[in-house]
Nucleic acid binder design. Structure first.
Length: 575
RNA sequence: GCCAGUUUAGCUCAGCUGGUAGAGCAUCUGAUUUGUAAUCAGAGGGUCGUUGGUUCAAGUCCGACAACUGGCACCA
């Protein structure tokens, strides 16, 4: 009998729990669901699991599977359940909750291990693969996901229906690790980090910064076409600004701030919004000005928790492709839809078609009335459904000042990262008391939308690099062409080729080092150079170039003029 | 921030049970003038993350701190 893979994974989680119980009888069990690519189980014990335990646990699991144990379900009364789990505090907490919610208490027994569990499970462990799983890691995880609770030990396991599937998964993960943004950053000479001097901050090298600027240039062009204006606001402002905005209270500890000689408290901006609001507020606005779409490529600094930093994906200093849309309430939904379309269209030009969308709704700690939350959440949901976009609700994950849409992209190994976002803000307009004069001559409060498409240039570039394995499209490539003369006799011609390209606005350079062509080809290929133009006697005489494109073994010969013209076209932004 | 692991040359990594550091690539110098994924030879380069401790002796053992990696929490 074959079962859905989730059932297999979940059953394996019970097998692991049984195995761990055998090895550590005193252990307390929390819970162990199936997840993407496998499962985990959370345990609580003074014993510290480490990699050395993995093999032991796996061996024990195989033994248990071999024994063809059955998974027996029973529905029990609260009293019986309490008796069963009296020495299992985490299970006790669950069963009280289930009972309070009026749920039947279902238990499953496999060998010596009885778990409070809804199932479903396989019938017998003979339905489980003996070699389709492998323990991946042990990690800390808070009980019920709350950092106020005790940290448990979570054992992650990759699990598939067969060894072949597991092996191909592991192989894929291994391949994906080669596309890690940190690795590519080094290999392609794009950026580096200085953990000693600036943990979580990027040092952009020439080539990396070329990509970075290109991304901004592209976004700027798209925004101008979409009716945005662009502003630039100060990076350091008086702390009172953040107190007014309400961010100091909530995020004060994550800000960089300091006192100046005159005793004022300044703060390095952690977000751009108040700056934009001050520009809005600088003059009397009319309903005719709305919607006012105000973009800013703002560099922000946030003191992120040390454990959250991760290559380009999570940094402490980054540039947002931020914008604030000031609009009348009745314009809000249309603005959301336009922004949504813009985001997805731009993602498509970067090759991202599989974009997950979350609608994050009101959190517990929030400001604003429930009526306004209703309205804002509804407009976002309407914008999505009216245009047929699938999305998931992320309950309670909204910002304290309003609900938000999150646009999620995945990195090389499948982790999800929020990139784009659209957020409705009912806080700042109020706090900064901004208004516009309506048709009726009266003051009205505008609605403010925050939106970012890339989110952070840093993170977006990380995702982009990983998804393309460093092989960027020509228009984004920092060095689309490198010219390689076959010997020093052809340096002059190589430099002419470079001059022609640069003259036409195509960045190129010549590799004039005293090395063999083979050597240069290898090195340039590893640095992901898209096009290598080799020139020698023949090319010099014919005024041509011989081209080798990344990942393509065959070469083609082209007149230099035609090549330059082709490149001019190839590096154009896909607007 | 929390849990676990890691930290040796610019990069990738070796260094067994403690006896004062190695390789390949890169760099520099010389030779070579190269036709599509590594030309040959030589040289230089490390207070072994920082800091305490144990020891006659610490890269190696113990502690603290920092950074990084994988998770958890957080993510305006």
């Amino acid at each position: 009998m074959s079962y859905p893979i989730e059932t297999v994974r979940h059953s394996l989680a019970h097998v692991m729990a049984a195995a761990v119980k055998k090895l550590h009888p005193e252990i307390k069990f929390a819970g162990g669901p199936a997840i993407e690519n496998g499962f985990y189980y959370d345990f609580d014990t003074d014993y510290r699991f480490s990699e050395e335990d993995f093999e032991k646990i796996e061996r024990e699991m195989r033994e248990l599977i071999k024994s063809n144990g059955r998974f027996e379900q029973r529905i029990v009364s609260l009293d019986e359940a309490k008796k069963l789990f009296h020495d299992q505090p985490y299970k006790m907490e669950w069963l009280n909750e289930y009972d309070a919610a009026g749920e039947a208490l279902s238990i499953y027994t496999f060998r010596d291990f009885t778990d409070l569990c809804r199932g479903p499970h396989v019938e017998s462990s003979k339905d489980l693969p003996r070699d389709g799983f492998k323990i991946r890691a042990v990690a800390g995880a808070y009980w019920k996901g709350d950092s106020k609770n005790k940290m448990l030990q979570r054992i992650y396991v990759d699990a598939f229906a067969s060894k072949d599937e597991l092996d191909s998964f592991l192989k894929m993960q291994e391949e994906a690790a080669k596309r890690d943004n940190r690795k590519l950053g080094r290999e392609m000479d794009l950026f580096h980090f200085e953990p000693e001097f600036a943990p979580g901050a990027v040092f952009w090298h020439d080539k990396g910064y070329k990509i970075y600027r290109r991304l901004i240039e592209y976004m700027r062009a798209r925004q101008e076409r979409a009716g945005y204006v662009e502003v630039c606001t100060p990076g350091v402002m008086d702390r009172s600004l953040w107190e007014t905005s309400g961010h100091w209270e909530k995020y004060g500890a994550h800000n960089y701030s300091g006192k100046t000689e005159d005793g004022r408290m300044f703060c390095i901006k952690p977000m751009n919004c108040p700056g934009g609001v001050l520009i809005y507020r600088n003059e009397l606005r009319s309903y005719r000005d709305l919607p006012l779409r105000m973009a800013e490529f703002g560099k922000v600094n946030r003191y992120e928790a040390s454990g959250s930093l991760m290559g380009l994906m999570r940094v402490r200093e980054f540039t947002q492709d931020d914008a604030h849309i000031f609009c009348a309430p009745e314009q809000m939904e249309a603005e959301c839809i336009d922004t949504l379309k813009l985001i997805l269209d731009i993602y498509k030009t970067f090759g991202f078609t599989d974009v997950k969308i979350y609608l994050s709704t009101r959190p517990e700690k929030r400001i604003g009335s429930d009526e306004i939350w209703d309205l804002c959440e509804k407009s976002l949901a309407n914008a999505l459904t009216a245009h047929g976009y699938a999305f998931e609700i992320n309950p309670g994950e909204g910002a304290f000042y309003g609900p938000k849409l999150e646009f999620i992209l995945r990195d090389a190994i499948g982790r999800e990262w929020q990139c784009g976002t659209i957020q409705v803000d009912m806080n700042l307009p109020e706090r900064f008391d901004i208004s516009y004069i309506g048709e009726d001559g009266e003051k009205h409060r505008p609605v403010m939308l925050h939106r970012a498409l890339f989110g952070s240039i840093e993170r977006f570039m990380g995702i982009l690099l990983e998804n393309h394995a460093g092989n960027l499209p020509l228009w984004l490539s920092p060095e689309p062409v490198v010219v390689v003369p076959v010997s020093e006799k052809y340096r002059e011609y190589a430099e002419k080729v470079v001059a022609d390209l640069r003259g036409a606005g195509v960045y190129a350079r010549a590799d004039l080092r005293d090395e063999k062509v083979n050597y240069k080809i290898r090195e340039l290929s590893m640095a992901k150079t898209p096009i290598i133009a080799v020139v020698g006697e023949k090319e010099q005489t014919d005024k041509s170039v011989t081209l080798r494109r990344l990942g393509v073994e065959s070469q083609d010969v082209m007149p230099l003029d035609a090549f330059v013209a082709q490149m001019v076209d190839a590096i154009k932004m896909p607007l």
